[in-house]
Amino acid sequence: NKFNKEQQWATYEILNLPNLNEEQRKAFIDSLKDDPSQSANLLAEAKKLNDAQA
């Protein structure tokens, strides 16, 4: 299913963002699990935070 693929991709991407700390990473991944339909939005937020902390 589409959300499952998006969720897996977003999880992979978030795990590989270098500037997030473990707590932030875990929070994003927990949110992905809670609502896979928000995968794209959550990934965008994670990338923004990652860039802000660069």
Rank of each mutant, 00 (worst) to 15 (best):
A52E: 12
L15M: 13
P36V: 03
A44P: 01
N21M: 11
D35I: 06
K33D: 13
L20K: 00
A44V: 11
N16F: 05
A52I: 12
D35F: 13
A10D: 03
A40P: 05
E6F: 13
S39M: 05
L49R: 04
K26L: 09
D34F: 14
D30L: 06
L32D: 00
T11I: 11
K47G: 03
K47P: 00
E6A: 07
S39P: 04
A54D: 06
K2T: 03
N19W: 12
L17M: 13
E22L: 13
S39A: 11
L20A: 00
K33H: 09
S39R: 04
K2A: 14
D35Y: 14
I14P: 01
S31N: 08
K26M: 08
K26H: 11
E23H: 10
Q7K: 02
E23A: 12
D34M: 13
A54V: 07
D35G: 04
A52V: 12
A27G: 07
E6V: 04
A40I: 14
P36A: 09
L17E: 00
N50H: 02
D34Y: 11
L42E: 02
L49A: 06
L43G: 01
D34T: 11
K5D: 15
S31Q: 12
S37G: 08
F3H: 15
A52K: 13
K2D: 15
A52Q: 12
E45R: 05
L17K: 00
E45W: 05
K26R: 13
I14E: 01
L43R: 04
L20D: 00
K5L: 02
F28R: 00
P36T: 03
Q38K: 09
F28T: 01
Q24D: 04
K47N: 06
L20E: 00
L32I: 13
A27D: 14
A40L: 14
N21Q: 14
E22A: 09
D34E: 13
N50L: 01
N41I: 08
K5N: 14
A40M: 14
A46E: 00
N21T: 13
K47T: 09
K33P: 02
P18I: 05
K47M: 12
Q53H: 07
N4D: 15
A54F: 08
E22N: 12
A54H: 12
N16W: 06
E22K: 14
D35M: 08
S37F: 06
N19T: 04
L32H: 00
N21G: 10
N21I: 08
E13I: 12
L49T: 07
Y12G: 13
K2H: 15
T11V: 09
K47D: 02
A54Y: 11
L17G: 00
F28V: 02
L42A: 10
A52H: 11
T11A: 15
L15I: 11
A10E: 02
K26A: 11
D51I: 07
K5M: 03
D35A: 13
Y12D: 14
P36F: 05
Q7A: 15
N41V: 09
L42V: 14
L20I: 14
Q24E: 03
D30M: 11
N4T: 14
L17V: 00
L15S: 13
L20Y: 00
L17N: 01
K47A: 07
K47W: 06
L15K: 08
I29M: 10
D34A: 11
E13T: 08
E45A: 06
K48R: 10
Q8M: 12
L42P: 01
N1P: 15
N16G: 09
F28L: 06
N4R: 02
S39F: 15
N4I: 13
N19S: 09
N16V: 06
K2G: 15
N19G: 05
A44T: 08
S37A: 10
I14S: 01
D35S: 13
A40W: 10
K5V: 05
T11P: 02
W9M: 14
P18V: 07
P18S: 06
K26S: 12
N1W: 00
A27W: 11
D51T: 10
A46F: 02
N41M: 10
D30K: 05
F3P: 15
S31E: 10
E6G: 03
N4W: 15
Q53E: 05
Q53Y: 07
N21S: 11
A27S: 11
S37V: 05
N4P: 15
A54P: 08
N21V: 05
E22D: 12
F3T: 15
L20M: 02
D34K: 08
S37H: 05
Q53K: 07
K47L: 13
E45M: 09
Q38E: 08
T11R: 06
A27N: 11
L43K: 02
W9D: 10
N1H: 05
L43I: 04
S37Q: 09
L15R: 05
Q53D: 04
L42G: 02
S39H: 14
N1R: 03
K33I: 14
A10Q: 02
W9N: 06
Q53L: 10
Q8A: 12
Q8H: 03
D35P: 01
Q53I: 13
A27L: 11
S31V: 10
P36Q: 02
P18G: 07
P36D: 03
L32Y: 02
E22P: 13
Q8V: 07
E6Y: 11
L43F: 08
Y12P: 02
A27F: 06
K48A: 10
L49I: 11
P18Y: 05
D30I: 08
L15D: 08
F3I: 15
D51M: 10
S37L: 08
A54K: 12
W9Q: 15
L43S: 03
R25L: 05
